[in-house]
Computed example of a mutant assay.
Amino acid sequence: MTKEQIDIKTPEFVSLQFKLAGLGSRAAAMILDQVILTILNIIAIVLLLFITSSDIMLMAEPGWLFAVFIIVLFVVNWGYFFVCEFFFGGKTIGKHMVGIRVIQENGHSVTFLSAIIRNLLRIVDMLPTSYFLGIVLIFFHSKHKRLGDMAAGTIVVHERQVKRQSKSAIEKEIDRRGLSKDTLQVEEWVIRSLGEKDWKLLKTYTQKFPTLQDYRKVQLTKEIASILLSKIGLEAGTKTNQELENILLVLYLYMKEEWEYEL
């Protein structure tokens, strides 16, 4: 393993290897994000100026208006990173364009708490100016971590390019049915609300699916659907068995990206 590679043993005893994102790629992503934030800040300031120009707001205390400005700008600048990293798989727009993402040190996606911690500590990493402290830490740390990463237990890695192997039986079945993630629109936050137990249940179902006898397939499909569909806001009782099968197979495609590790 080179300095730029990291091996991770997951709680499921799966060995993963990632390429760490260094100072160059992280700086490029930050520059892109700062361009976007500059635009957002300008829009926010223009809107605030428009709102505060009303007669009622002109009567308000200058200190109160200044506080509103500070709060709004903090929410925009901090909220951008938190929302993107938590709801969009550890990637801001800049990170997505560069091809890097934030993950937990155990290889799983960034959690709600870790997203909050690593981004709140941006305030410290920015000291004394222009992310100087963060840049120094990333350069010298063995895993290219800034202070926020150390506290949150996160790392920044390059997106893995997975070499496609021959398709499994369930993948062939999904292709035969013409199913894809576009078949069922599910919000990212809904997928993230499903846990490891849900994934293991669904994975076991899909592994058995191609070889099940018809009567057993119907029974198992209804059992799994009754457990999972309510968690994504769907009613299982109003759908045919074919529809339930298709929904579960598409849900498998969504969850596979989050939970299955291809070596």
Rank of each mutant, 00 (worst) to 15 (best):
F87Y: 12
V110D: 00
Q104T: 03
F82H: 12
A115C: 13
F88D: 08
F81S: 02
T92R: 14
V102M: 04
G90T: 00
S109A: 10
G79D: 11
F88W: 12
G107M: 09
Y80M: 10
F112K: 06
L113F: 07
E85M: 05
G99F: 13
N106C: 09
G79I: 10
E85T: 02
V83N: 13
C84G: 09
I116C: 13
H96I: 05
F87P: 08
I100T: 04
V83L: 15
H96R: 12
F82K: 09
Y80V: 06
L121F: 14
N106D: 15
K95A: 13
S109D: 13
R118I: 06
S114V: 00
V83Q: 13
N77F: 14
T111D: 07
V76E: 05
I103L: 09
F82M: 15
A115S: 15
F88A: 08
F81P: 01
K95Q: 13
Y80E: 10
T111P: 01
G94R: 04
I116P: 07
G107P: 05
R122I: 04
G89S: 06
K91I: 13
T92F: 14
I116A: 14
N119H: 14
C84D: 05
G79W: 09
F81T: 01
N106T: 11
E105S: 09
R101G: 08
V76Y: 02
V102Y: 04
F87G: 08
F81N: 03
N77Q: 15
F81E: 01
V98N: 12
L113H: 03
T92C: 12
E105T: 10
G107D: 12
C84R: 04
E105I: 08
I100E: 01
G79R: 07
H96K: 11
V76G: 03
N77G: 12
I93T: 05
I116N: 12
T92K: 09
V102P: 01
E105M: 08
V83K: 13
A115V: 03
F88L: 11
H108A: 09
G99H: 11
R122W: 07
Q104P: 01
W78P: 09
N106M: 10
G99S: 11
F81H: 03
A115N: 07
W78F: 15
N119T: 14
V83M: 15
G107W: 04
K95D: 15
E105K: 14
C84E: 03
S114K: 01
G107E: 10
E85V: 02
W78R: 12
H96L: 11
H96V: 03
F86I: 02
F112Y: 13
R122P: 08
F112T: 02
I117K: 04
R122M: 03
G89N: 08
V110F: 00
H108R: 09
A115M: 10
R118Y: 02
R118C: 02
E85L: 04
R118G: 02
N119G: 12
F86V: 00
F112Q: 06
F81V: 02
F81M: 05
E105H: 03
L113M: 15
S114H: 06
V102T: 08
V102A: 11
G79Y: 08
T111S: 14
R122V: 04
V98A: 13
Q104D: 03
G89D: 06
G107Y: 05
I100K: 00
I93K: 10
E105A: 09
Y80G: 12
V110G: 00
H108I: 00
F86L: 05
G94D: 04
Y80C: 09
H108Q: 11
S114G: 06
F87V: 11
I117D: 01
L121A: 06
